[in-house]
């Protein structure tokens, strides 16, 4: 049974009338044209679909859209302020922490969520927090550098 669901996506109110069992990821990608969050596994095991819901990170592929009703969703498309990139986006660019780039939006949003909770994470805290985000190019060393840079804990 289709239901009207109200989402505040990147500051903009959107109402979708849809099956409430659909994933938030599908609704973002298929109904709202926001393809930044990626499908990687469909069961919340890889982090490619990471978005922020009321400021906390969620795995949108494992979140029924009904649970996002009236929530504020931030996707990668909403991170930069106009032409000015978010510091985490900048850090990924500056460190060249990108290979194929498919995991990158999820990595960036996970990092944003981390730094909101722990502005100065230790390496151990970064690793613990990021372990749910897979990079199959295995570009983890440069992603670590990007996170350290974004956290201002770059020690080089």
């Amino acid at each position: 049974m289709d239901t009207a669901i109200k989402l505040i996506v990147n500051g903009k109110e959107e109402t979708v009338v849809t099956d409430p069992a659909r994933s938030l990821l599908d609704v973002l990608r298929e109904d709202l044209g926001l393809t930044g969050a990626k499908y990687g596994c469909g069961e919340g095991l890889c982090g490619a679909c990471t978005v922020l819901m009321d400021g906390k990170r969620v795995l949108s592929c494992a979140t029924p859209v009904a649970k996002a009703d009236k929530k504020e969703i931030t996707t990668i498309e909403g991170l930069a302020a106009g032409d000015s990139l978010h510091p985490v986006q900048k850090a990924f660019l500056e460190e060249g922490a990108i290979q194929c780039g498919y995991c990158t939006p999820g990595m960036i949003l996970s990092t944003v969520a981390l730094l909101r909770e722990k502005p100065h994470p230790t390496d151990e805290q970064i690793i613990e927090w990021m372990n749910g985000n897979i990079c199959r190019c295995n570009g983890y060393p440069k992603i670590m550098n990007a996170i350290r840079r974004a956290a201002g804990s770059d020690r080089r």
Binding site: T35, Y39, T75
Partner: peptide, 23 residues
């Protein structure tokens, strides 16, 4: 020299459309 991937900005902003992003 270490030239970065030319479209890397589009990767971090998700302006780049991967094959599964084509609509």
């Amino acid at each position: 020299s270490s030239v970065p991937r030319p479209n890397s900005r589009d990767i971090v902003t998700a302006e780049h459309r991967f094959p599964s992003d084509i609509r």
